[in-house]
Amino acid sequence: MNPASDSEKEECRRLLDGLSLYLDGEAEAALCAEIEAHMAECENCRIVVDTLRKTVLLYREESPAPLPSDVRRRLYAALKLEDYLVTGKGE
């Protein structure tokens, strides 16, 4: 992924496997240090890490849809729980 030497490309590929753990704060200190040192040298990997982080954030920020009220009503009906629908929340 890098217009660089084969050994540097190898480094990019090797660190790739640890990026998800790194983003989740689950990578060990040594791996974090290695990834950060590599990013400082490798612009392409910095972009991959930043856009990967942003990708996850965009999905996490998407506000969850509440259960549509007609779906909720039909669910209660299917479960024969209509008597409890009026006392429920979200209507």
Binding site: N44, I47, D50, T51, K54
Partner: peptide, 11 residues
């Protein structure tokens, strides 16, 4: 393949 190809920085 999982090797990143797109390198546009859209952050």
């Amino acid at each position: 393949s999982q090797v990143p190809k797109q390198l546009y920085d859209w952050c």
